[in-house]
Amino acid sequence: MNAIVSIAKTTVGEAIRRRVLLVILLIGVLFLVVAPGLSVLTARQSYTVLTSFTLGVIQLTSAVIAIVLTVYLIPNEIERRTIYTILSKPVQRWQFLVGKFLGAVAALALMMTLMTVTMGLVFMIMRQGSGMEALGGLFRVPLMFFVQMSLLAAVAVFFSTFVSPIVNFFLSGGVYLVGTFFNPLFDTFSKNENLPAIVKGSATIIHMIVPNFANFNVQNQVINPGAVITNEATYYLQLVAYAVFYVLVFLIGGILVFDRREV
């Protein structure tokens, strides 16, 4: 356990010094700060657009950070040969991998917190204190984004045990897009009554296996306060459980590959 925590800590220390990540983060924060200027687009729905845009910036930036951060985790260690000194210590490979993953998630949490706080400040200034109670609801969206990004990081960690960072970047990005697409796609698909049962059946199976990132996009209701959703808290708990299951799947898969891997 000690080893995992130590590895996670150094991973955070490294991540928050990675220039690429800081640049991406800076761009994200800049977008958040200029977001209020975009409300000219649609006067009537300025609040909607501002909220949607702000949350979108956080989500997109976080996704890019999650992927860029994670795809280099293992390859960098191998390239710099730091992994040799670590693996020659009484550290199991799975501990190394889990430590790296947890470090990435912690770094992600730090960066996402920064963006969320920026968003909070922007909204506070925009609304000048009024309607702040509605703002409370806003923060659960980045929270679910964080769960989503942790899952994405697990996907990237898994791939990083056997593909190069560039390939991994597109692979993980692809999984993220497909995972975001698949829910709505399957939604239409399942409503189409003309499809043969076998096609439908296999779609159902794929749908159950692919990590469905769209599940975590709970911003609709915050952006459109009209929607009434009951039992939201339960849903969030289910989401966390869902993410944990998938993280386990990808980490175990990663460990199985990494354990056999020659570094």
Binding site: P184, N212, Q221, A227, N231, Q238, L239
Partner: peptide
């Protein structure tokens, strides 16, 4: 979890 709880809820409340 997805098939029985999350997706139906998602479809009801968040799907376009």
């Amino acid at each position: 979890l997805h098939g029985t709880m999350i997706f139906p809820f998602w479809r009801k409340n968040y799907a376009v």
